[in-house]
């Protein structure tokens, strides 16, 4: 194993040509996914995290979408690949699991048919028999009870959690190096959510995969992430290890998100204001219009460059530049019961 990250994304930009103008959903973001680790892409709805995750293998519809920037996967630049070369990577070495398992399976075909299709897409020589054997194994592996008998059932005969298990089984067909999971638990109820998260963690070990996990749920992040990338309005606000993000949250946006967790100061009202328009974003820091600590410099020029705090921790905020005092934004967290801490994971 090399030290090179499995996936490294640089300047990834995804634009959509709409009737109202060019919509920039993802605006030049960088991040890396180390081998065997889990990176969480975090942000509120509309921050561009889903589009970013779907831009990696270009499953965003193009046109109207256009993806630019560099995506290096296992040492290979994949943005310049042709559609047919990309197809080999999609579902081959990079697999996807999506948010809403209710609609993610085709209701006209049995789950067995759909898993067999995934097998035969990447290994055309596999016979129907072998592919079905593999499907049964995988369904067993993801915890679908009585897999052999359920193979010829239709998606509507499965519960939401079971459907998500089927989706995961389908993603594992080719033993991928990277699993991109886009809010895979959001549509499920809480107990099922925990089961799916545990399953993903087990499978990550078993299949030695990296996972890119897209979510808005910081509780989930705390459970599974190794690294966290916080996105807002198409830009990266802060990145760091999970400990750094929870113990030393530095960007006002990250801090505001954490304050929205249950038991924290903003848990009831959330962050005031709304996301800026992706067609005509504000100058300066994207978060400045909603930021409690915004100063004049925050609303001019581009998004501030990322200031490294440690080897792994960086923040894109004016207050961390030279000549500013970070302590202005690092006010203490007030909990609902009045206790005051420096971070939210404080015990």
């Amino acid at each position: 194993m090399t030290d090179e990250p499995l996936l490294s994304v640089e300047g990834l930009t995804t634009e959509f040509d709409t009737d109202n103008g060019v919509l920039t959903a993802v605006d030049g973001i960088d991040f890396e996914i180390p081998r065997g680790e889990t990176v969480c892409l975090v942000g509120e709805s509309g921050s561009g995290k889903t589009v970013a995750s779907e831009s990696i293998t270009r499953i965003v519809p193009t046109p109207p979408g256009e993806v630019t920037g560099s995506v290096r996967f296992d040492g290979q630049e994949i943005t310049s690949l042709s559609e047919s070369e990309l197809r080999e990577i999609r579902g081959g070495r990079i697999a996807h699991v999506f948010q809403n398992p209710q609609d993610a399976l085709n209701h006209c075909y049995t789950v067995g048919w759909q898993i067999v299709e995934a097998v035969q897409t990447h290994e055309p020589d596999t016979s129907e028999e072998e592919a079905r054997e593999r499907a049964i194994e995988l369904l067993n592996d993801v915890g679908v009870a009585n897999a052999a008998a359920r193979l010829d059932d239709y998606p509507h005969e499965f519960s939401g959690g079971q459907k998500q298990r089927v989706m995961i089984a389908m993603a594992l067909v080719t033993n991928p190096d990277l699993l991109i999971a886009d809010e895979p638990t959001t549509a499920l109820d809480v107990t099922v959510q925990a089961q799916i998260l545990n399953l993903l963690e087990e499978l990550q070990e078993e299949y030695s995969m990296s996972i890119l996990f897209v979510t808005h749920d910081l509780g989930v992040v705390a459970q599974i992430a190794d690294h966290v990338v916080v996105m807002y309005a198409g830009k990266v606000m802060e990145r760091g290890t999970v400990e750094e993000i929870f113990d030393d949250p530095s960007h006002p946006y990250t801090r505001a998100l954490l304050e929205c967790l249950p038991g924290q100061a903003r848990s009831a009202e959330g962050i005031p204001g709304t996301l800026p328009s992706p067609i005509d974003p504000p100058d300066g820091c994207r978060f400045a219009p909603r930021c409690d600590y915004a100063v004049e410099e925050c609303t001019a020029g581009d998004q501030p460059p990322e200031e490294p705090l440690t080897d792994t921790h960086a923040v894109s905020c004016v207050h961390y530049q030279q000549g500013y005092d970070p302590s202005t934004v690092k006010t203490e967290f007030t909990q609902e019961d009045g206790t005051v801490t420096g971070g939210v994971s404080g015990d």
Partner: peptide, 22 residues
Amino acid sequence: NADFVKTAKAKGVSTYRIYARH
């Protein structure tokens, strides 16, 4: 634009097959 078409695309299924089957 259905989710299952996105799933098929993410599986690596060709555009022709997506329309012809899914």
